[in-house]
């Protein structure tokens, strides 16, 4: 046995030291993040949009469903309607705030669910190996044979639209890539010396899996999943843009973009607003993920 694995074994025995090392790592990550202005600004923007969406009834200046035939497509800057009104005379700012609820939910929930299911499957495939690995990974390969947007549209289309079906189809398309990353990392970690060392100690399979494997797999998989949120918001909004998400009069950025599209000749700026929200939010998630990746020093 090499000296490295003996050292790893000793660390395993002295549990408190292990904890100390971990805290050191996370405080380092937080320290790096606090010195990264771009990530902080992006995080702030996302937090602002999310808080506005959560507290929409108190924050929004108007009723999101209140239509007005005489105030249709009021331009940006109209008194009382800072961002103008939509094709039914509803306040744009209000609907953009309310729209964040569905849009953020359909961006984050599918990735979280895919992380849970796909990540678990990937760790199992990587840790157990052999036939189990074959069965899981070859099934995932089939989903790789579809361009992801196409598969999301196909599943949502076949299921018949609606927000639940959109979330379901997005979960299905994010599961295979997350599973693959989890499997790759788990396989790498499983074959490292410190896992072999842990096996030599009385640590059971459960403990090895939870502490040694998960502790090392979670970071990269989490980073990878976070990079999918911006993809998720673009595809989710794309689904509602096609009419496969929430149904009117519910507010959602993709759906608003779709209905306002008819008005580009009358009020082009109003029509571009919901898409700008998708863009800004997606971009912020993307940059945050990049920032987190370099702060956690993970290579994928």
């Amino acid at each position: 046995m090499s000296s490295i694995s003996i050292a790893a074994m000793e660390r395993e025995v002295e549990a408190p030291q292990f904890v100390a090392v971990r805290r050191g790592y996370w405080s380092m990550v937080v320290g790096r993040l606090s010195r990264d202005p771009l990530t902080i600004v992006c995080g702030g923007i996302v937090l602002l949009i999310a808080l506005a969406a959560i507290f929409a009834p108190w924050v929004a200046p108007h009723d999101p469903y209140q239509t007005s035939m005489i105030k249709r497509l009021a331009p940006i800057g109209t008194p009382g309607h800072v961002l103008g009104t939509d094709e039914l005379g509803r306040d744009m700012l209000t609907r953009l705030i309310y729209g964040g609820r569905v849009s953020l939910l359909t961006a984050i929930v599918p990735v979280a669910m895919a992380l849970l299911i796909g990540g678990t499957l990937g760790v199992i495939a990587g840790f157990v190996g052999g036939r189990v690995n074959m069965a899981i990974m070859r099934t995932m390969d089939v989903f790789y044979a579809f361009p992801s947007i196409l598969l999301a549209i196909a599943i949502s289309g076949a299921l018949g639209g609606g927000i639940l079906n959109a979330v379901l189809s997005l979960t299905l398309i994010f599961m295979p890539p997350i599973c693959r990353v989890a499997e790759t990392v788990t396989t790498q970690v499983r074959n490292l010396d410190f896992v072999a060392a842990a096996r030599a100690t009385p640590a059971g399979t459960g403990r090895i899996l939870m502490v040694h494997v998960l502790g090392n797999v979670l970071g990269p998989v989490l980073i990878y999943a976070s990079s999918l949120i911006s993809v998720s918001i673009i595809i989710a909004s794309g689904l509602s843009f096609l009419g496969l998400g929430v149904s009117p009069p519910e507010a959602d950025w993709g759906l608003m973009l779709n209905t306002l599209r008819q008005s580009i000749y009358v009020a082009p700026l109003n029509a571009a607003l919901p898409g700008a929200m998708i863009f800004v939010t997606g971009m912020c998630f993307n940059l945050m993920s990049d920032g987190l990746r370099s702060a956690m020093d993970v290579k994928l």
Binding site: S230, I234, S237, G238, F241, L257, R261, I264, Y265, P268, A271, A272, P274, G275, A276, I278, F279, G282, M283, N286, L287, D290
Partner: peptide
């Protein structure tokens, strides 16, 4: 490049129509 991967391409399409076709 980051803008390219973050921009919802269907929205960019609409913006292009607004700029080059409408305006």
């Amino acid at each position: 490049a980051i803008t390219g991967v973050s921009v919802p391409h269907y929205w960019l399409a609409i913006v292009l129509v607004i700029v080059f076709s409408v305006e």
